[in-house]
């Protein structure tokens, strides 16, 4: 009788151990930037279809959240639409985490207006003055006599930080600006508001809003890659140290031609040629 029970216990614990081991080996947790989210979502669906038994879980929350999760070791990959900050590197070092950046795609930030707006393009300076609240009427930049409603992403989103970097430089966005929490909310707000101006990542651009030219250059994959279009940026996946196992396979899948086809399909700019991660 006792032998029988022993057998059961042994076999059960074997099952648990192997299951636990399998789970640890074949599951990837990804967190972070909502800009990188659609690419990652499409890529992991394709990857999990091709590699049965691999579990990838993905959540948004923003670039800061992604890097925080990487540092806290609650994620294997931290998605970010900006480079990691000095303070974050320092915090990571304190916890024994070494963030390694992998550029997985390019994104272009695009100023958008309502399709009914006559304005076709703006210069970087004009954009900056509008966002500082110094230009307040569309007629000052060649549009109708309408008040400008400035819509921005929340000041802690990666997209905002890129906008801050490209357009605002050292100046501040007017406190009268509406701050919306996601790219999706921005599209909805601008599509329904002919007074509005905002900006978003290329992947979220659709027919309900009108993209503006910047300094006379329209955003496209070519102009973003060639850096002729001024507001283009890299999108990152951060890992703790050089990736290994499934994580490495997933990232190299995303960088492969098949992965980059997904990037393009999601409306982002694919890498010119497969590149190694920097830093």
């Amino acid at each position: 009788m006792s032998g029988f029970i022993k057998k059961i216990i042994v076999s059960m614990s074997l099952v648990f151990f192997t299951a636990g081991w399998a789970l640890a080996a074949d599951s990837i947790v990804i967190k972070g930037s909502t800009t990188v989210l659609p690419i990652t979502q499409a890529a992991l669906e394709a990857y999990m279809k091709a590699n049965k038994g691999v579990q990838i879980s993905l959540s948004g929350g923003g670039s800061g959240e992604g890097i925080k999760a990487l540092i806290d070791k609650t994620a294997d990959i931290g998605n970010s639409s900006r480079e990691i900050k000095k303070e974050e590197v320092a915090l990571a070092a304190k916890k024994g985490v070494k963030p390694v950046a992998h550029v997985v795609a390019y994104d272009a930030l695009i100023p958008i207006v309502n399709p009914r707006n006559k304005v076709k393009g703006l210069s970087t300076d004009q954009l900056s003055l509008i966002y500082q609240g110094k230009i307040t009427n569309w007629k000052e930049v060649g549009g109708d006599d309408l008040k400008i409603v400035v819509i921005s992403r929340d000041s802690s989103s990666g997209t905002f930080e890129s906008w801050d970097h490209f357009v605002m430089k050292k100046t501040k966005v007017t406190p009268r600006a509406q701050m919306l929490p996601s790219n999706g909310a921005i599209v909805t707000a601008v599509a329904k508001n002919r007074y509005a101006i905002s900006y978003l990542g290329m992947g979220y651009l659709n027919k309900s809003v009108k993209a503006l030219e910047v300094n006379g250059v329209a955003a496209s994959s070519q102009t973003a890659l060639s850096r002729q279009y001024p507001f283009s940026r890299e999108l990152y996946m951060y890992t703790n140290g050089e990736p290994a196992g499934e994580v490495a396979k997933f990232i190299s899948f995303l960088k492969s031609p098949a992965g980059q086809a997904i990037v393009k399909q999601e409306g982002f700019v694919p890498l010119a040629s497969p590149k190694k991660g920097r830093k």
């Binding site: 800061g64 540092i71 915090l91 802690s156 989103s157 701050m179």
Partner: peptide, 14 residues
């Protein structure tokens, strides 16, 4: 709070 907490670095001033 809801909009910014997700993006504020842990234990930063923000």
């Amino acid at each position: 709070i809801a909009a910014e907490m997700g993006e504020a670095p842990y234990r930063s001033l923000h």
